[in-house]
């Protein structure tokens, strides 16, 4: 399959480029550790003051943190760098080299989604899995097969939702090339660190149905602790499919706009 072969090539080349600079090792390592420490320490500080907030105790909040770090690691592994290289600061739109991308005889959405990899983010991925494991250990509950299955399904949906949101925000750059839309979604993604139920009602609604960063982490964490109803599971899946279709449509509209108005 050409798609997989291309992904493999992109991965190989990106890895080569990243390993060319030794300083990258040190920096990625430092960042990963800082992320882990701030995440875990934040929860410790909060649950040092209270036992639970709106039904979330330390173990379940820790599970959510694990999901958050996992999504953040996947974003950093390829979705983020690929889309940033198009729509971010100094990206192709900014520099005008997007023309070359447009001229490649490959599906453009595929190309801009998988092109750049940051292999050292695999380290963050391991740390995230560690946090998840620790959370499961804290829960001390029997994990039912159903809960694990629900967790995996909703986790995949979470990744897909994150991808759709990032793609949609990246596509906006075609309408205003000077604005860093990807930064907004990166900022908003921080809201996914905590369960949506902790936010005021109006924000909860926004984070669930409009910019679904809340759904990405809250739903999988609920599934893991066996608190997710099947109605919500189905709703999440439907919403994810809708978001993927919508984001892809927006991206194609953006391409049309770009090729009719660029100079």
């Amino acid at each position: 399959m050409q798609g997989l072969r291309l992904i493999f090539e992109f991965f190989k080349v990106s890895t080569q480029a990243e390993l060319a600079y030794r300083a990258n090792f040190f920096i990625r390592f430092l960042n990963a550790i800082l992320n882990l420490v701030t995440g875990v320490l934040s929860l410790t500080v909060i649950f040092n003051q209270v036992d639970s907030i709106k039904g979330w105790d330390l173990p379940s909040a820790m599970a959510l943190l694990g999901v958050y770090l996992l999504l953040a690691a996947l974003r950093g592994l390829f979705i983020g760098p690929s889309l940033e290289s198009v729509a971010g600061m100094d990206g192709e739109i900014w520099q005008g080299t997007f023309d070359f991308t447009l001229l490649r005889p490959v599906d453009k959405q595929f190309l801009i989604s998988f092109r750049h990899w940051r292999v050292l983010m695999l380290f963050d991925l391991c740390l995230a899995l560690g946090v998840l494991g620790y959370a499961i250990h804290l829960m001390q509950a029997e994990l039912t097969l159903l809960a694990v299955l629900g967790f995996i399904i909703t986790l995949i949906a979470g990744v897909a939702l994150l991808y759709a949101a990032l793609l949609a925000f990246s596509a906006l750059v075609f309408w205003n090339s000077g604005f860093l839309f990807t930064w907004i979604i990166n900022d908003l993604f921080q809201l996914a660190r905590y369960p949506v139920e902790l936010y005021p009602v109006w924000l909860r609604l926004v984070l669930t149905w409009i910019i679904p960063v809340g759904l990405m982490t809250t739903i999988p964490a609920q599934a893991l602790s066996g608190r997710l109803s099947w109605q919500w599971l189905i709703l999440t899946l439907l919403f994810t499919i809708g978001a993927l279709i919508g984001a892809s449509w927006l991206f194609r509209q953006g391409l049309k706009k770009y090729t009719s108005a660029s100079s």
């Binding site: 072969r5 992109f10 490649r104």
Partner: peptide, 11 residues
């Protein structure tokens, strides 16, 4: 390396 990737893109 860039050439190799391009050759894959253009099959």
């Amino acid at each position: 390396d860039s050439f190799r990737v391009l050759s894959k893109i253009y099959k």
